[in-house]
Each structure stands twice: as structure tokens, then as C-alpha cells.
Design a protein around this nucleic acid. Structure first.
Lengths: 138, 138
DNA sequence: ACACTACTTTAGAATCATTATAAATTAGAA
DNA sequence: TTCTAATTTATAATGATTCTAAAGTAGTGT
């Protein structure tokens, strides 16, 4: 219970009321050591595994979008079927395992020296995203 | 009319019957100097601008998928709303203009020195895709 | 030219992720 | 406690894509 204080504070300081649904989602997403990659569907399944306190799909969408807007989550465009989200909001890249459809983080340092030689007049670079597709090497 | 011969041959040699719908789509996609980026919706609008010979949505999807499978088109994951296709099937990257949602080709040479330091055991790299998001620099 | 069969096209239905809606619930302030 | 605005929720709506099954067409053999 005391653990939730961090999340309650986090939510409150972002102008989001700390409802039990949001706290539950916070715990699931942010109370972990390693980066977590997920789809809304994944999240819904995990959240609603225990029947006692279900969170509706609409709330999951709302909450994830709020979190993204606040910068707590990154959205990753991998394929058009589903949206992937990433709890690692730092500047980094990804492996995509074509066999399992799993995302794996690549630290910024793991991809060195990305230099873009071409420029578009009147435009500035906002971000550079690298997706490395991998597959079984058998 | 004679122009179509190229496309008829191309289709035939790929085991695709040269129907008038496919030829029409071929002309639209491949009879141009510059790379063409499009969504199915774009294509449908252009194809069906003239009312005389409409091509159904289902046929457009079928044809584009066939072309992709044959390697005549590349599919690009930019955002989950829509699928983008690219008539440039060579190894290259993209700018994505966040203001207009437009894709712009980046030659392979325009992005130099992509080296991935990390490896995943049992996996080999299939492709490396770089997406450079740009926006108005006003 | 004719007939046959497999390939294509097509309209419309089905699907699936996501968003909108509107009513019921809840948090925080007075 | 009471009030109001924020939130949750079930359900409907949307929009891209896929499926389906019937009608049309290309290519082969006659």
C-alpha cells in the first residue's frame, strides 16, 4: 500500500487524479526494473487476469494515452496491426524479432554514429528512430 | 497502348494475369521517374477519379499485396493508422514530415555508418530501417 | 470460334483495433 | 456532507483491412 504513494504523487503532480484504475496500471507498468514493451491488448489481459477488479478497455486506452501525453510512455510504430508502447522513454532504438514479434531495447550507445547527410529546407530533425529487424539465424 | 507491353510482360513473368485493373495500377505506380509513396486510400482516390473504369477496393488490396509479395513494392511502418507503400524497393530510409505526414526518401548513402554493437544470440540481422522525423523549423 | 477451368474481380459482410458517447460513479474542494 | 468536475464504463461508432461467395475473364486445348 505504501508503495502506491510514489504513483499517487506522480499522478497528482501531473494533474491526473489517482484513481484505483490508474494506480493499478502504474504499478503494473512502472514498478519494474526492466523496460516493458506492450500492446493495449497485452495490458488488458494482464490487468484483468484476476477477476476481482476489472479495468475496462476504454479506461486502459484513456490512461495509456494520458501517460503518453505526459511523457511516461513512448509509442513505437512497428507494424500497423497494433500499437506498441514502451516504458523506456529515453532516447533509444529497437530490435524487432520477426519470429516472435518481440521488441528488444537497443541503447542509444549500441547504435553509433548516425549521421544524416541530407537536409530538407525549412525542416528540422525531431528524432531519429532505428528499427533493426532480426530473425532466427539457424 | 504499346507502353503497356512492359507491364503485361512484368505481370505475366510473375505469374500474374495481366488484367486491365492490374495494368491500370501498374501504370499508375511504375510509370514514373520519382519514387511514389502512397496509402491504399490515396491509390483508390487516384484510380477512381475518372468514373469510367472503377477498380474496387478489394482488387486494390489484392493487387498491392501481390506486388508486395513479388517485391515490386515495399511496405513502410510509419504509424498504425494506415499502411504506406513505396515504389522504391531498394535499400533506403525515410524522412517523415510530422507536419504534413509526408514520406521522403533518404538514400542509403545519406545515412552513413550504421553499426549495431549489440547482438542477440541465435538471431541474425534481417534489415535496418531508419526513420527520421522532421518538422517545421520556423 | 468454342468450351472449359482456374484465376480475378467485385460488392458487401465480417473483423479488429481504436475512438466516441452518454450515463453512472468517484475524487477533491467547500 | 454536498457539490461539481473528472473519471470510468458498457456500448455504439468508426475506419482500415480481410473474407466470402457469386459473377466475370484469361488462357488453354479443341
Amino acid at each position: 500500500m505504501e508503495n502506491n504513494c510514489i504513483f499517487i504523487e506522480k499522478l497528482r503532480s501531473s494533474g491526473l487524479r489517482p484513481t484505483k484504475q490508474r494506480i493499478k496500471i502504474c504499478k503494473l507498468l512502472f514498478d519494474r526494473k526492466k523496460t516493458f514493451h506492450f500492446t493495449i491488448n497485452d495490458l488488458s489481459k494482464i490487468l484483468n487476469k484476476e477477476i476481482r477488479q476489472k479495468v475496462s478497455l476504454a479506461t486502459i486506452y484513456n490512461t495509456i494515452h494520458s501517460f503518453k501525453k505526459k511523457g511516461y510512455l513512448k509509442e513505437i510504430s512497428v507494424n500497423k496491426d497494433k500499437s506498441y508502447f514502451d516504458t523506456n522513454t529515453s532516447n533509444h532504438h529497437h530490435f524487432l524479432d520477426m519470429n516472435t514479434n518481440e521488441l528488444i531495447d537497443l541503447k542509444s550507445e549500441d547504435v553509433h554514429n548516425i549521421k544524416i547527410k541530407k537536409r530538407i529546407p525549412g525542416k528540422k530533425i525531431n528524432s531519429i528512430e532505428v528499427l533493426v529487424k532480426i530473425e532466427n539465424s539457424n
